[in-house]
Amino acid sequence: GSATVSILNGSYLKPNTPKNTGRQKAASLDKTRQADGDSAEDMNPQPVTLTSDQLCTTFPYHLIFDRKLRLRQFGRTMARLSPVPLYTGLLVTSVFHVLFPRISFTVENILQFTNSIYILGVGPSPSGKQNGGAAESGLSLKGQMIWFAESEMMLFIGSPRLQSLTEMKRMNIYMSDIPLYDVTREMVLLYQQRNAEIDITKKLDETTAELKRTSRELALEKQLTDRLLYQMLPAKVADQLKLGMKVEAEKFDQVTVLFSDIVEFTSIAAACSPLDVVNMLNNLYHKFDVQTNEHGVYKVETIGDAYMVVSGVPEVTTTHAQNVADFALTMTRLARSVLTPDSGKPIKIRVGVHTGPVVAGVVGVKMPRYCLFGDTVNTASRMESHGVPARIHVSLSCFK
């Protein structure tokens, strides 16, 4: 038969007395063992006993109390962590309260739920009731209630409910306070590892979001940079430079070059403030720049009041002369809409146009510029300087 063991101050109850049938079977078994050479001590082993100190050390989170809920024994770690000093005879409900199941802390209620997992809160009940009322924010124990009817003692054996090292630090619990056989160690470490993985994932998400934001900003800055680059250089040349390619100088057999300047610009600049002159030029050149795309011409540069465009470079076209001629007519019309700061009269410009061969290429490294070279450029400049105000001076080659 099985022996019922009651743990209290190192004492044990004797095994239950078996029935006659059990005695006969035991006697028959004893004779068999004696025949096999077993000693009487081997056939009747004495129960293994533990002292109270050994029990308190082996199960550091156990409690033993009687039917009147008076404390009889407790684990060493339990005594250290309790906010109230523990001693034999202390009323258990003055220190511990049942969080789960939702019952009053009495032996009768516990006996009705002996197969349940019990969670005990350590410390005064937050709601002043024995069942805890609300969730426990301090130390709590999870374990099992075992009733020993012979001695009328209730044994609670459990372990602290912990999830992280932060909780252990807050409750002043060390890893050495948790027995090696208790899975709480693995749970805490697993929870800590999970938190670390969550933190890493969160940081990765934040880094990813930051990279996406930076990528969008870089894309916007790239668009602005490309737009500025395409304003300084032809699109074909700018794309080659972006790819790190060397832009070789090219010769173009037939292009049309235009020069223009403001009539009596020196007198206007002398009579006005520098700021007024700049605003006047900016207003005039802005109107010209908008029309360059409309007429398919490329703005080469502006020097003071001189404005230079070309068609047929770097994209070859057979309508280069017509493109420049149309643009020249538009220029003279737009110039009349801009007034001089000194007199308030419309601006007059001279325009010179010539057609011929040129050599074009990128000059400079720090501030590269797309420049044109050849007699065609010089001739177009001379056509402008010898022209008539508010008129377009066209060379014979351009006219043909």
Rank of each mutant, 00 (worst) to 15 (best):
S176Q: 11
M168C: 13
K203G: 00
L241G: 04
E217P: 03
L224S: 03
D205L: 06
G158S: 10
V237Y: 02
Q223Y: 04
L243W: 00
E221H: 03
L204W: 04
Q163M: 10
Q231V: 00
I146S: 10
T207L: 12
I198D: 05
R194T: 14
A209Q: 14
M175V: 13
M232K: 12
R185M: 09
Y174L: 12
T166I: 07
I146G: 01
Y181W: 12
K236L: 07
M187W: 09
E206S: 09
D239Q: 10
F148I: 01
R185V: 08
V183K: 13
D205E: 14
E150A: 15
A209E: 09
M154T: 15
I157R: 13
S215E: 09
M168D: 05
A196G: 06
L165N: 10
T201N: 14
T184V: 15
P160R: 05
K202L: 09
L190F: 12
T214V: 02
A238K: 05
P234S: 07
L229T: 02
L155I: 10
L190H: 11
K202I: 02
I200C: 05
Q240M: 11
Q240P: 01
D205W: 03
M187G: 04
I146Q: 12
E186R: 15
M175E: 13
D226Y: 00
E217I: 10
V183T: 13
T201C: 03
G244K: 05
M153V: 13
Q240R: 13
E217G: 01
D182L: 08
L228W: 01
N172W: 01
R194Y: 14
L233K: 05
R213Y: 04
S164C: 12
S159Y: 06
N172D: 12
I173D: 07
E167S: 08
V237N: 01
W147E: 01
E217D: 11
Q163Y: 15
L224K: 12
L224D: 09
S176I: 05
S215P: 01
A209Y: 04
T214W: 00
E197D: 15
G158H: 06
S176A: 13
D177E: 06
T184N: 05
M232W: 00
L180K: 14
I178C: 04
K169Q: 14
D182I: 05
E150C: 01
M168K: 04
L243Q: 11
L228T: 05
L229P: 00
A235E: 07
A238W: 06
Y191V: 02
D177V: 10
S164E: 03
M232P: 00
Q223T: 08
E150P: 14
M175I: 12
S159G: 10
G244H: 04
T208A: 13
A235I: 08
L224W: 01
E186A: 15
T214Q: 13
E210F: 03
M171A: 08
S164F: 02
T166L: 06
A209P: 00
Y174H: 15
K212P: 01
E206Q: 08
